[in-house]
Protein backbone atom coordinates (compact mmCIF):
# COMPACT_ATOMS: atom_id res chain seq x y z
CA UNK A 1 0.00 0.00 0.00
CA UNK A 2 2.75 2.43 1.03
CA UNK A 3 6.25 1.82 -0.21
CA UNK A 4 9.10 4.09 0.87
CA UNK A 5 12.38 3.48 -0.97
CA UNK A 6 15.64 5.25 -0.27
CA UNK A 7 14.11 8.59 0.68
CA UNK A 8 16.48 11.43 1.59
CA UNK A 9 15.59 15.02 2.35
CA UNK A 10 17.57 18.08 3.31
CA UNK A 11 16.86 21.72 4.11
CA UNK A 12 19.86 23.48 2.65
CA UNK A 13 22.83 21.73 4.18
CA UNK A 14 20.80 20.18 7.01
CA UNK A 15 20.05 16.52 6.39
CA UNK A 16 16.59 15.61 7.79
CA UNK A 17 16.11 12.18 6.27
CA UNK A 18 18.80 9.81 5.06
CA UNK A 19 18.04 6.83 2.85
CA UNK A 20 14.80 5.77 4.54
CA UNK A 21 13.05 2.63 3.29
CA UNK A 22 10.06 0.72 4.63
CA UNK A 23 6.78 -0.80 3.53
CA UNK A 24 3.23 -0.68 4.85
CA UNK A 25 1.12 -3.51 3.43
CA UNK A 26 -2.63 -3.46 3.12
CA UNK A 27 -4.27 -3.94 6.51
CA UNK A 28 -1.00 -3.43 8.35
CA UNK A 29 -0.44 -1.09 11.29
CA UNK A 30 3.06 0.38 11.48
CA UNK A 31 4.17 2.44 14.46
CA UNK A 32 7.01 4.88 13.84
CA UNK A 33 8.84 6.03 16.96
CA UNK A 34 12.08 7.70 17.93
CA UNK A 35 13.43 10.67 19.86
CA UNK A 36 12.27 14.17 18.93
CA UNK A 37 14.08 15.53 15.93
CA UNK A 38 14.62 12.05 14.52
CA UNK A 39 12.68 12.93 11.36
CA UNK A 40 9.64 10.71 11.97
CA UNK A 41 7.11 13.52 11.50
CA UNK A 42 8.90 14.66 8.37
CA UNK A 43 8.85 11.13 6.96
CA UNK A 44 5.12 10.69 7.46
CA UNK A 45 4.47 14.08 5.84
CA UNK A 46 6.47 12.93 2.83
CA UNK A 47 4.03 10.06 2.36
CA UNK A 48 1.20 12.34 1.23
CA UNK A 49 3.49 14.93 -0.30
CA UNK A 50 3.10 17.64 2.36
CA UNK A 51 6.89 17.67 2.55
CA UNK A 52 8.92 17.40 -0.62
CA UNK A 53 11.97 15.13 -0.70
CA UNK A 54 15.00 15.18 -2.96
CA UNK A 55 15.97 11.54 -3.36
CA UNK A 56 14.22 8.21 -3.39
CA UNK A 57 10.68 7.24 -4.15
CA UNK A 58 7.42 6.88 -2.27
CA UNK A 59 4.61 4.93 -3.91
CA UNK A 60 1.13 4.99 -2.40
CA UNK A 61 -1.40 2.61 -3.90
CA UNK A 62 0.64 2.46 -7.10
CA UNK A 63 1.06 6.22 -7.44
CA UNK A 64 4.47 7.86 -7.10
CA UNK A 65 4.23 10.79 -4.66
CA UNK A 66 7.41 12.52 -5.77
CA UNK A 67 6.49 12.49 -9.45
CA UNK A 68 5.74 16.09 -10.50
CA UNK A 69 2.99 14.78 -12.79
CA UNK A 70 1.10 13.20 -9.89
CA UNK A 71 -2.14 14.92 -9.00
CA UNK A 72 -1.39 15.31 -5.30
CA UNK A 73 -4.82 16.62 -4.24
CA UNK A 74 -6.47 13.55 -5.77
CA UNK A 75 -4.03 11.26 -3.97
CA UNK A 76 -4.39 13.06 -0.64
CA UNK A 77 -8.17 12.90 -0.86
CA UNK A 78 -7.86 9.16 -0.26
CA UNK A 79 -5.04 9.21 2.27
CA UNK A 80 -6.39 10.27 5.66
CA UNK A 81 -4.16 12.27 7.96
CA UNK A 82 -4.48 13.17 11.63
CA UNK A 83 -2.27 15.91 13.04
CA UNK A 84 -0.63 16.55 16.39
CA UNK A 85 -2.57 19.80 16.88
CA UNK A 86 -5.86 18.44 15.45
CA UNK A 87 -6.08 21.23 12.88
CA UNK A 88 -9.83 21.36 12.77
CA UNK A 89 -10.95 24.49 10.98
CA UNK A 90 -11.87 26.88 13.82
CA UNK A 91 -14.31 29.02 11.83
CA UNK A 92 -16.51 26.08 10.84
CA UNK A 93 -18.95 24.05 12.91
CA UNK A 94 -18.01 20.43 13.62
CA UNK A 95 -20.52 19.32 10.99
CA UNK A 96 -18.98 21.64 8.40
CA UNK A 97 -15.52 20.40 9.29
CA UNK A 98 -16.71 16.88 8.50
CA UNK A 99 -18.41 17.76 5.23
CA UNK A 100 -16.44 20.53 3.55
CA UNK A 101 -13.87 18.29 1.88
CA UNK A 102 -16.45 15.63 1.01
CA UNK A 103 -18.40 18.28 -0.88
CA UNK A 104 -15.62 20.34 -2.42
CA UNK A 105 -13.08 17.61 -3.10
CA UNK A 106 -15.14 14.45 -3.64
CA UNK A 107 -18.13 16.34 -5.01
CA UNK A 108 -20.62 14.54 -2.79
CA UNK A 109 -24.05 16.10 -2.44
CA UNK A 110 -24.51 17.99 0.81
CA UNK A 111 -27.01 15.66 2.48
CA UNK A 112 -25.00 12.58 1.62
CA UNK A 113 -21.86 14.24 3.02
CA UNK A 114 -23.69 15.25 6.16
CA UNK A 115 -25.13 11.81 6.65
CA UNK A 116 -21.69 10.23 6.28
CA UNK A 117 -20.13 12.84 8.57
CA UNK A 118 -22.71 12.43 11.30
CA UNK A 119 -22.43 8.65 11.15
CA UNK A 120 -18.69 8.89 11.79
CA UNK A 121 -19.20 11.55 14.43
CA UNK A 122 -21.54 9.15 16.17
CA UNK A 123 -18.92 6.45 15.87
CA UNK A 124 -16.37 8.56 17.76
CA UNK A 125 -19.08 9.30 20.32
CA UNK A 126 -19.59 12.98 19.61
CA UNK A 127 -22.86 13.16 17.70
CA UNK A 128 -24.31 15.66 20.14
CA UNK A 129 -21.61 18.19 19.34
CA UNK A 130 -22.23 18.54 15.60
CA UNK A 131 -23.45 22.14 15.80
CA UNK A 132 -20.57 23.36 17.98
CA UNK A 133 -17.31 24.95 16.88
CA UNK A 134 -13.93 23.28 17.47
CA UNK A 135 -12.95 25.85 20.11
CA UNK A 136 -15.82 24.65 22.28
CA UNK A 137 -14.53 21.09 22.50
CA UNK A 138 -11.75 19.58 24.61
CA UNK A 139 -8.51 18.50 22.96
CA UNK A 140 -9.45 14.83 23.07
CA UNK A 141 -12.85 15.55 21.53
CA UNK A 142 -11.26 17.67 18.79
CA UNK A 143 -8.86 14.89 17.91
CA UNK A 144 -11.70 12.38 17.66
CA UNK A 145 -13.50 14.76 15.32
CA UNK A 146 -10.30 15.07 13.29
CA UNK A 147 -10.18 11.28 12.94
CA UNK A 148 -13.82 11.25 11.87
CA UNK A 149 -13.08 14.02 9.35
CA UNK A 150 -10.34 11.93 7.77
CA UNK A 151 -12.51 8.77 7.75
CA UNK A 152 -15.36 10.62 6.06
CA UNK A 153 -13.23 10.73 2.91
CA UNK A 154 -13.23 6.90 2.79
CA UNK A 155 -9.43 6.72 2.94
CA UNK A 156 -7.49 3.72 1.70
CA UNK A 157 -5.00 4.25 4.51
CA UNK A 158 -4.52 6.58 7.48
CA UNK A 159 -1.49 8.59 8.59
CA UNK A 160 -1.26 9.68 12.23
CA UNK A 161 1.32 12.31 13.15
CA UNK A 162 1.76 12.19 16.95
CA UNK A 163 -2.01 12.22 17.47
CA UNK A 164 -1.86 12.20 21.27
CA UNK A 165 1.23 14.22 22.12
CA UNK A 166 -0.62 17.55 22.42
CA UNK A 167 -3.27 16.07 24.71
CA UNK A 168 -3.63 16.17 28.47
CA UNK A 169 -2.94 12.71 29.91
CA UNK A 170 -6.56 12.03 30.84
CA UNK A 171 -7.65 12.53 27.23
CA UNK A 172 -5.10 10.29 25.56
CA UNK A 173 -7.04 7.08 26.01
CA UNK A 174 -10.27 8.28 24.43
CA UNK A 175 -8.29 8.96 21.26
CA UNK A 176 -6.26 5.75 21.43
CA UNK A 177 -9.45 3.73 21.87
CA UNK A 178 -10.76 5.05 18.56
CA UNK A 179 -7.45 4.25 16.88
CA UNK A 180 -7.31 0.72 18.32
CA UNK A 181 -10.81 0.03 17.07
CA UNK A 182 -9.83 1.30 13.64
CA UNK A 183 -6.77 -0.93 13.59
CA UNK A 184 -8.78 -3.96 14.61
CA UNK A 185 -11.15 -3.34 11.72
CA UNK A 186 -8.23 -3.76 9.37
CA UNK A 187 -7.45 -0.16 8.41
CA UNK A 188 -3.99 0.34 6.95
CA UNK A 189 -2.27 2.74 9.35
CA UNK A 190 1.07 4.46 9.69
CA UNK A 191 1.29 5.98 13.16
CA UNK A 192 3.99 8.25 14.53
CA UNK A 193 3.63 7.99 18.30
CA UNK A 194 5.36 7.43 21.61
CA UNK A 195 2.45 5.40 22.93
CA UNK A 196 4.13 2.03 23.26
CA UNK A 197 0.99 0.56 24.81
CA UNK A 198 -0.79 1.24 21.54
CA UNK A 199 2.08 -0.32 19.62
CA UNK A 200 2.01 -3.45 21.75
CA UNK A 201 -1.71 -3.81 21.35
CA UNK A 202 -2.25 -3.36 17.61
CA UNK A 203 0.97 -2.71 15.69
CA UNK A 204 2.28 -5.29 13.27
CA UNK A 205 5.69 -3.69 12.92
CA UNK A 206 7.62 -0.95 14.67
CA UNK A 207 9.97 1.39 12.85
CA UNK A 208 12.52 3.17 15.03
CA UNK A 209 14.16 6.31 13.71
CA UNK A 210 17.16 8.29 14.92
CA UNK A 211 18.85 11.30 13.34
CA UNK A 212 16.96 10.98 10.10
CA UNK A 213 17.66 7.28 9.59
CA UNK A 214 15.52 4.22 10.02
CA UNK A 215 17.59 2.37 12.58
CA UNK A 216 15.25 -0.52 13.18
CA UNK A 217 12.30 -1.95 11.27
CA UNK A 218 11.07 -5.08 12.99
CA UNK A 219 8.01 -7.11 13.87
CA UNK A 220 6.45 -5.79 17.07
CA UNK A 221 7.39 -8.80 19.20
CA UNK A 222 10.99 -8.71 18.07
CA UNK A 223 11.27 -4.97 18.61
CA UNK A 224 10.05 -5.05 22.18
CA UNK A 225 11.80 -8.26 23.14
CA UNK A 226 15.22 -7.69 21.66
CA UNK A 227 15.83 -4.28 20.15
CA UNK A 228 19.06 -4.59 18.21
CA UNK A 229 20.39 -1.04 18.31
CA UNK A 230 21.66 0.64 21.41
CA UNK A 231 19.65 3.80 20.61
CA UNK A 232 16.42 1.85 20.52
CA UNK A 233 17.24 0.18 23.83
CA UNK A 234 17.92 3.55 25.44
CA UNK A 235 14.74 4.96 23.92
CA UNK A 236 12.60 2.12 25.22
CA UNK A 237 14.15 2.38 28.66
CA UNK A 238 13.40 6.09 28.80
CA UNK A 239 9.83 5.71 27.54
CA UNK A 240 9.07 2.99 30.08
CA UNK A 241 10.20 5.17 32.93
CA UNK A 242 7.53 7.72 32.11
Amino acid sequence: MISIRGVSKHYGSFQVLTDCSTEVNKGEVIVVCGPSGSGKSTLIKCVNGLEPFQQGEIVVNGISVGDPKTNLPRLRAHVGMVFQHFELFPHMSIAANLTVAQEKVLGRPRDEALERGLKLLDRVGLKAHAHKHPGELSGGQQQRVAIARALAMDPICMLFDEPTSALDPEMINEVLDVMVELAQEGMTMMVVTHEMGFARKVAHRVVFMDQGRIVEDAAKEAFFATPRSERAQQFLAKILHH
Binding site: N48, L75, R76, A77, F83, L88, F89, A101, A150
Partner: peptide
Protein backbone atom coordinates in the same frame (compact mmCIF):
# COMPACT_ATOMS: atom_id res chain seq x y z
CA UNK B 1 -0.73 22.93 10.35
CA UNK B 2 -3.95 24.47 9.03
CA UNK B 3 -2.56 24.61 5.52
CA UNK B 4 -1.31 21.03 5.80
CA UNK B 5 -4.67 19.90 7.12
CA UNK B 6 -6.41 21.44 4.11
CA UNK B 7 -3.96 19.89 1.68
CA UNK B 8 -4.12 16.52 3.42
CA UNK B 9 -7.88 16.42 2.83
CA UNK B 10 -7.23 16.67 -0.89
CA UNK B 11 -7.89 20.40 -1.32
CA UNK B 12 -5.81 22.12 -3.97
CA UNK B 13 -3.73 25.06 -2.76
CA UNK B 14 -6.38 27.45 -4.10
CA UNK B 15 -9.14 25.55 -2.29
CA UNK B 16 -7.08 25.52 0.90
CA UNK B 17 -6.89 29.31 0.76
CA UNK B 18 -10.53 29.61 -0.16
CA UNK B 19 -12.04 27.31 2.45
CA UNK B 20 -9.46 27.07 5.23
Amino acid sequence: GQKNAGLALGFTLAQTYRYV
